[in-house]
Design a protein around this nucleic acid. Structure first.
Lengths: 258, 258
DNA sequence: AAGGAAATCTGGCAGTGTTAGATTTTTCTG
DNA sequence: CAGAAAAATCTAACACTGCCAGATTTCCTT
C-alpha cells in the first residue's frame, strides 16, 4: 500500500505539481504520491461503504487524522477527488477485463469475448459503487480531459473487446459485414477515429463493436443498479447466455473469408 | 398545470394522507394534490437545470415562496421527494415509449419494436437528468415498494416491449427459441414471474426479452451518460441500426410456425 | 360557534464544500 | 550551514444543506 518503489502508481491523478520530473522523484514528490494514494484509498473505502454521494472531504480527512484543508493541497475541490476516483476505477475495471481474458485457461467452448464480458460484469457486481462512479452520474460540468487517464482506459478496454470480438477476421470480411447501410458521413466519421483504435476498423465493424459494447454494458448496468432483482440468483446465467448469443449474432453478420 | 379536474394525477406520490377517499376529494385534499404537484414540478425544473444531486428542499421552497418546513408536510424527507420524482419519471418514460409506438404511422419498413426503442432513447436524450434519476444512482437505502408506482411502470413498459418484440409468435414458437439451454431452476424461476406479464412467456422468450431490454438500455445509457461522444452526431443512426439488427437477431432465433 | 386537524411559521442543530490567512515543516540555494 | 522559498498544515469562518421542535395560523368538520 505504501510501496512506491516503481514510481507513482496514479501519476495522472496528482493535480500538483503540474510537471512531474521523469528522472527521479524527490522525497517530497514521493511523499506527495503516497499522500494522494492514501487519500484515494480512504475515499474508495468510504464510497464502498455508503455510496459515491456520501463521500465527504471532512470524513476522509478525519479517517486520515488530518484536517480538511490538508486535502485541499492535494485536490483543489471535491470534484477533483471524485475525478481521480473515476479515473482509477476505470483503470481497475479495464485491468479486470484484461486479466479475465488473459488469465483464463484455454477453453474453446467459451469464446474469449464472453470471458471479457464476464470480467466486466464481475468487477461491476463486486464494485457496484465504483461502477456507478464511472457509468452512473456524470459530474455537473465534468469534461473528461482529451487525453486523460480516462480516455486512455477507454482505449485500452475497447482494444480488448476489439481483439476478442473481431480479431479473427480480415479487413475485407469486416467491411462486408451484413448490417443496414451506414450513411456516408457516418462511415467517414468512424474512419477518422483514433487510427490505432476504433479508426483502424472498417466502419461496419466499428458499428458492430459499439453495438456489442452497449449490449454488454446495458445488462450489467441494469443489474448493478438493481433493475433485474426479479431475475433472482440467475443473473450470471442470463448474462452468459446473452453474451454467447451476442457473439454468435455478430459473427453471423460477418461473411466467411473468400 | 394546476388542473386537477380528473383526480390527483400522481395519487401514489402523495405520502399523506394514508388513505385517499375514492368518492369526492375534499377541497383540502385537492389543494394538497395541487401543492404536491407544484412541488414535484419545481423539483423537476431544478433537477433539469443542475442535475439530480443538486436538488435542494430549501431551493424548491424558495422557488415556491414558502419555507422548507412547509415541504415537510408533503414529503417526510428529501428522499421521499426524490422517490416521487423517480416514480413520475418512470411513468413519463413509459408513456413516451407507448406513444412512440401508438402514434407512429404504419410503416412496415420500421418494426414497431424499433419505434418503441427510439421512443425510449428520445425521451432519455430529451430528459437526461430524469433518466439518470431512474437508471443512474439508486438512493442510499431506497427500496422500491413491492407494488408501488415504479413496479407498475416497469410492468407497463415491459408489456409494450413484450408485445412489439414477441407479439407475432405462438407460445410453441417461443418455447422453441434457439438459445443455449436454460438451467431447470432458471426456467422454473422465470415461469413464476407475474403471470400477467413476463411469467406468461415461455422461459426462452423471457430470456430473449431481457436480453433485448439490456441491449437497448445499454446503448441509451452510454449515450446519456456521455460515453459515446466520439460517435458524434450519428448516435441516432447507430442506435437505429443496432435496434434493427437486434430485432432481426431475436426473430432469427425463433423458429417459423409449424 | 367550537374543537381539531392541517398547514405554515420561526429558530436552531449538525453537517457539508470552500475560502482566507497564519503557521509550521521541509527542501533548495547561496 | 544559514536563509529563502515552497510545500504542508493549521484555525477560523461563510454559506449552504437536511432535518427537528415548538408555536401559530388557517381551514374543515361537527
Amino acid at each position: 500500500m505504501l510501496d512506491f518503489s516503481d514510481g507513482p502508481p496514479y501519476g495522472d491523478l496528482m493535480p500538483l505539481p503540474s510537471e512531474t520530473v521523469a528522472a527521479r522523484p524527490s522525497l517530497r514528490e514521493r511523499r506527495r504520491a503516497v499522500a494522494v494514494q492514501e487519500i484515494v484509498g480512504t475515499a474508495e473505502r468510504h464510497i464502498a461503504e455508503n455510496g459515491p454521494h456520501a463521500l465527504s472531504l471532512r470524513a476522509v480527512a478525519r479517517s486520515l487524522g488530518m484536517t480538511v484543508q490538508a486535502l485541499y493541497h492535494y485536490f483543489p475541490s471535491r470534484d477533483d477527488l471524485v475525478t481521480a476516483l473515476i479515473a482509477k476505477a476505470y483503470g481497475d475495471l479495464t485491468d479486470a477485463v484484461r486479466s479475465a481474458v488473459d488469465d483464463a485457461p484455454d477453453d474453446p467452448s467459451v469464446p474469449r469475448m464472453v470471458l471479457a464480458a464476464e470480467g466486466y460484469r464481475e468487477w461491476a457486481v463486486a464494485n457496484p459503487e465504483r461502477f456507478q462512479l464511472v457509468y452512473g452520474a456524470p459530474l455537473r460540468h465534468y469534461r473528461a480531459p482529451a487525453d486523460g487517464p480516462t480516455t486512455r482506459a477507454v482505449r485500452r478496454m475497447s482494444a480488448v473487446f476489439q481483439r476478442e470480438l473481431l480479431g479473427g477476421f480480415t479487413q475485407a470480411q469486416l467491411e462486408a459485414a451484413d448490417i443496414p447501410a451506414l450513411s456516408p458521413s457516418f462511415r467517414d466519421h468512424l474512419r477518422h477515429l483514433s487510427p490505432d483504435g476504433l479508426g483502424a476498423l472498417p466502419p461496419p465493424a466499428t458499428a458492430l463493436l459499439l453495438n456489442a459494447w452497449g449490449h454488454m454494458h446495458g445488462l450489467v448496468a441494469l443489474e448493478v443498479f438493481g433493475h433485474t432483482t426479479f431475475v433472482g440468483p440467475h443473473r450470471a446465467e442470463l448474462f452468459r447466455m446473452a453474451m454467447r448469443n451476442m457473439v454468435e449474432d455478430v459473427h453471423a453478420r460477418i461473411p466467411p473469408a473468400v
